[in-house]
Structures are given as structure tokens and as C-alpha cells.
């Protein structure tokens, strides 16, 4: 929901970043206010996934220019864990398997870390279990997944649902969903989208990075941005996504 009076969460100006000496982001500008849903679309290699990883602080990427602030704080002065504690959440395109760490143990550890950061009480395993039993309903996940090692042996769809479960537990101010729709069948997509929608409020925001318009039928964006060659080349409303679906990306590339 667009409300120009609401608080600016993320402000990115002329962001440039490289990986292995190759410049990928060549000057990205983006402003995200509380309550907004943004979609970033683009062809493979346009820089949209890089953008999400840079915001979360992935160590493989080097910021070479520009600024980004989160609630007024310089984002690039923060370690990845400090960004998470400030309220940024990245749902991974390829969720990591962690054998030997149970899903519930990780969720509790992460939750309590954030509780401490926010000056709130930590939950013991029993209290946390009550919380988690509520949260797994958001993504319609079987409770048996809680006792299993993080993502180990999960299907693609289960991994993506697990990411959204983490988002539900950690309640971020800004959630960046990096191609969360990729590899999902229609049922899983619907569940994931429903989960994300149920977490939206006027205090938080979502940035969805996606290749396809399909996800946007379920999570309706306020803004659609098209990335190409490491820049946002066009911004519009949700109708822009439909136009892309109909016409492809080439007309924009030619225009740029």
C-alpha cells in the first residue's frame, strides 16, 4: 500500500557493486517505504539477484560506489548479522542445507538473538514451541520438519516454505525475496504467497526479485521495477508486469 507519508525504510542511491572484479550493479536507485511491496524484474544477468545479496551483505560482492541506508543508518557499515538484527531479511534463492542443526534449534537461536537485540525476553524451548506451532501454519508446514536438519532432504518447495517460515518467526521490517517463486509448483507458490501476504503490514515492506509475472498474481506489488545492465531502467505499477508478460523485455532494452 502506497502512503507517501509513511517512513522510508530503505534508500539506495547510485549503488555500484562488483563480484570477482566484474561490475554488476552500475548505479541502482531505490526507495522503499513502510507498507510497500516492490517487485524487481529483469532477465538473467540483469543484476537483480546481486542487488538482493548486496543488501543482505553477501561477502562475495564488493560495493564500489553509492550509498544505501536502512532507517537512516548506513547499511554498508553493518555486518550481515547487524543488518538482520536491524530488521532486514533475505529469503535465499537457493536455501542452504545445514546437516546437524535442527530447524527448530536454528529458529529459536535466531529468534532469541533478535529478541535480545530488541530488548525483549528470550523464549525457552517450551515457550518457543508454542510460538512456532502457530507460525508453521502460515506456510502449512508439517511439524515434523521442525525436528529435521535445516533444509536437509527438503524438496525445492519445502525449502522455500522454510525460508518464509523463518521470515514469519523473525518478523523483519524489510523482507527481500530472491526468486522465491523459482522452482515452485502452483500449489507451493500459492502457499508461499499466502504466507507472505499474511505477514504484510503498514510497518514492514517486501522487495520481491523475480523473473516471472506469475508470483505477482498472488503478491500484488505497489511498484514494479525493471532492471537491465545493472540499473533500474523502468519503474511502474503492477500493470508494468503485465506489459512485460505480454511484450517481453526487449522493448525496454531498446528504449534504454
Amino acid at each position: 500500500m502506497i502512503n507517501k507519508a509513511s517512513k522510508v525504510l530503505l534508500e539506495v542511491k547510485n549503488l555500484k557493486a562488483e563480484v570477482g572484479g566484474v561490475e554488476i550493479l552500475k548505479g541502482v536507485d531505490l526507495t522503499v517505504r513502510a507498507g510497500e511491496v516492490h517487485a524487481i524484474m529483469g532477465i538473467n544477468g540483469s543484476g537483480k539477484s546481486t542487488f538482493s545479496k548486496v543488501l543482505a551483505g553477501h561477502p562475495d560482492y564488493t560495493v564500489t560506489g553509492g550509498q544505501a541506508s536502512f532507517e537512516g543508518q548506513d547499511l554498508f557499515s553493518l555486518e550481515p548479522e547487524q543488518r538482520a538484527r536491524a530488521g532486514i531479511f533475505l529469503a535465499f534463492q537457493y536455501p542452504v542445507e545445514i546437516p546437524g542443526v535442527s530447524n527448530s534449534a536454528l529458529l529459536r537461536l535466531a529468534y532469541n538473538t533478535l529478541q535480545t537485540e530488541r530488548g525483549l525476553e528470550e523464549l525457552d524451548p517450551l515457550e518457543f514451541d508454542d510460538l512456532i506451532q502457530e507460525k508453521i501454519k502460515v506456510v502449512e508446514m508439517d511439524p515434523s520438519f521442525l525436528g529435521r536438519s535445516v533444509n536437509e532432504g527438503f524438496s525445492g518447495g519445502e525449502k522455500k516454505r522454510n525460508e518464509i517460515l523463518q521470515m514469519a518467526v523473525l518478523a523483519p521490517k524489510l523482507a527481500i525475496l530472491d526468486e522465491t517463486d523459482s522452482g515452485l509448483d502452483i500449489d507451493a507458490l500459492r502457499i508461499v504467497a499466502k504466507g507472505v501476504n499474511s505477514l504484510l503490514s503498514s510497518d514492514n515492506a517486501v522487495v520481491m526479485v523475480t523473473h516471472y509475472q506469475r508470483l505477482l498474481n498472488y503478491i500484488v506489488p505497489d511498484y514494479v521495477h525493471v532492471m537491465d545492465g545493472g540499473r533500474i531502467v523502468r519503474t511502474g505499477g503492477k500493470e508494468l508486469a503485465l506489459e512485460l508478460e505480454a511484450r517481453g523485455y526487449d522493448w525496454l532494452r531498446a528504449a534504454a
Partner: peptide, 15 residues
């Protein structure tokens, strides 16, 4: 594993 390390940090855990 560097990927697992970044994942955990992105969930708020210190290095």
C-alpha cells in the same frame, strides 16, 4: 562452508 556461514549471519547470528 562459506554459504552456510553467510546464511546463519543473515539470520542474525554473529560470525
Amino acid at each position: 562452508d562459506a554459504g552456510a556461514l553467510f546464511f546463519l549471519k543473515s539470520r542474525g547470528l554473529t560470525e
